[in-house]
């Protein structure tokens, strides 16, 4: 299934724009999906260190199943305020 992952903060410096489309098989966890994203980032995969996947409502733990239909975003460490 093709899923869109929105990119924020420093991840937009990877030269991939503000979102990427990934082919993710059903039943993947958030951690496994991040692994697929790292492969897409290739030599820029280091930018994903410390990042988490999230939906509009919550941050996903690595072992959480990827929700089927939610909006997904890759979030680097935060620094609001």
């Amino acid at each position: 299934m093709t899923r869109t992952i929105e990119l924020y903060g420093r991840l937009r410096g990877a030269g991939l724009g503000d979102r990427v489309e990934l082919e993710l098989r059903a039943g993947l966890t958030a951690g496994e999906a991040l692994g697929v994203l790292k492969a897409v980032f290739r030599e820029r995969a280091g930018l994903l260190e410390g990042c988490a996947l999230a939906t509009e409502n919550s941050v996903l733990r690595s072992a959480d199943p990827l929700p089927d239909s939610a909006r997904l975003a890759a979030l680097p460490p935060v620094c609001g305020g």
Partner: peptide
Amino acid sequence: IKKQLPVWKKEHYEDGESAWLAGCELAA
């Protein structure tokens, strides 16, 4: 806010460069 809010800062400097700032890893 510093620990949890999904917000990021990009600083712009007088020499025209800019950089994203480091932050706190989000925990579910």
